[in-house]
Design a binder for these strands. Structure first.
Ligand SMILES: [Mn+2]
Ligand SMILES: [Mn+2]
Ligand SMILES: [Zn+2]
Ligand SMILES: [Zn+2]
Lengths: 125, 125
DNA sequence: AAATATAATGCAACCAAGTTGCTTAATTAA
DNA sequence: TTAATTAAGCAACTTGGTTGCATTATATTT
């Protein structure tokens, strides 16, 4: 299990994910929380929250790690497989609700799919 | 235009991409070529080769940058839009020939798609 | 075959993201 | 309230990637 103690820092992180609709990069979190919390703490809490199925992570177009809140996941399995969208203009990253089928590739066994759409979001169009 | 002079270092890089079927991470290239070539040079040549449509780049599942040879691209446009596959066992990354249609998302303008399949390759099954 | 112009390399220093080991503090249970 | 132990802080480190500038090598001109 991931989080076992309800520390002030865990509450802070949970609050951020509960009020924020979009995904957040770890780098941004560390910056935003500098002074409140050590960056090592941020990384470790995110790890634990992911173990618990509270958040999920993925890699953005520049190789940075992003986190977003899960919808209906548990510590046993991450169910919400979905694409992500990254806006080239404002930089915002969001989870898309549209599902997609895992493509079959002959000779390969596909376990996970990372689908990142890059373009311009509705606000920036 | 990217490459204008046929230096020893450029030839070395081109030779690697012409003999290697799979994608190569920049980190691996820098390691493999250490002693032969400065890492700054590796990064800069890769940039130029990409400008010329000779190689293309993408981000692997751990956020590392990978390069692979293009098929039929020019300095004007990178045409070969395709998914990539990363094997969790041996770590190899390869370009998939299967094409896919760019998904439409209401309200968004999608310019590029990064599709990375993660699983087990035929050698490791 | 020099001389020239300048593209490209090497080097060192730097930056940013992420990790590790260990000490100290805070939460929870007894 | 004490004790057990999870979790936070801190500092040092690692790795991938970038930048500025001096030097070298390529291609072109004379
Ligand atoms: Mn998501
Ligand atoms: Mn490819
Ligand atoms: Zn936007
Ligand atoms: Zn494999």
């Amino acid at each position: 299990m991931g989080v076992t103690r309800q520390t002030k820092q865990v509450k802070t992180l949970l609050d951020i994910f509960n009020t924020e609709n979009n995904a957040i990069s770890v780098a941004d979190l560390v910056k935003k929380l500098s002074g409140q919390m050590n960056k090592t703490t941020v990384y470790r809490i995110l790890d634990r929250l992911m173990e618990d199925g509270i958040v999920h992570s993925f890699v953005g177009k520049n190789g940075l790690k992003w986190y977003a809140k899960c919808q209906g996941c548990s510590c046993d399995a991450h169910f919400d497989v979905h694409p992500h969208f990254q806006c080239k203009v404002c930089g915002e990253v969001s989870c898309l609700t549209s599902s997609f089928k895992i493509p079959e590739v002959k000779g390969y066994k596909v376990d996970a799919v990372n689908l990142l759409l890059v373009g311009t979001c509705s606000d920036c169009l």
